[in-house]
């Protein structure tokens, strides 16, 4: 049995057998809420490998396009440094730093280029949040 299937089964037992047998409003609510948490965790775990691969592929695609843009026309120093850091780590903190750098250098980038670069980042963010919504909603 996979961990996600195990959690789903425990959640069902909590919801169907344990929760209804618990007396007292507060502990009963806790039992049902524990079932909800286990179900969501189970779904998240079940999708983790597929989602991680998709996140990594999206990050590569984003970096390819951002680097192509940078080769076409130089980026302000702060944005270029943030892009280099993102390329090195691929992590969410570096992506946050890149977004902050775009906003900070908006005047230097000009509205059209700022919109294009942020729009490209947002495409990646939308795909990521849509994946998380599969188990979070």
């Amino acid at each position: 049995m996979n961990p996600d299937q195990l959690l789903e089964r425990i959640a069902t037992t909590l919801k169907r057998d344990i929760g209804p047998a618990v007396e007292g409003e507060y502990p009963k609510t806790q039992a049902f809420m524990a079932a909800v948490v286990l179900q969501k965790l189970g779904r998240q775990l079940g999708l983790e490998a597929v989602h991680r691969a998709a996140e990594e592929a999206d990050m590569h695609a984003l970096l390819d396009e951002l680097r192509a843009d940078a080769e076409h026309a130089p980026l302000p120093a702060r944005v270029a440094a943030a892009l280099a850091a993102l390329a090195g780590t691929h992590d969410t903190q570096a992506l946050c730093d890149f977004i902050n750098a775009l906003y900070a250098e908006r005047a230097a980038l000009g509205d059209a280029r700022f919109d294009a670069l942020l729009g490209r980042v947002r495409r990646t963010l939308r795909a990521s949040i849509d994946r998380r919504m599969v188990y979070a909603a």
């Binding site: 524990a34 948490v37 947002r122 963010l125 979070a136 909603a137």
Partner: peptide, 25 residues
């Protein structure tokens, strides 16, 4: 130890999705 608070970890992406929509993406 309130498990309702643990549940809210999954409310974060739900609100972030709404924020993305508010920002137009």
């Amino acid at each position: 130890d309130d498990i309702r608070l643990a549940r809210t970890a999954w409310s974060v992406p739900v609100v972030l999705e709404r924020a993305a929509t508010e920002l137009g993406y």
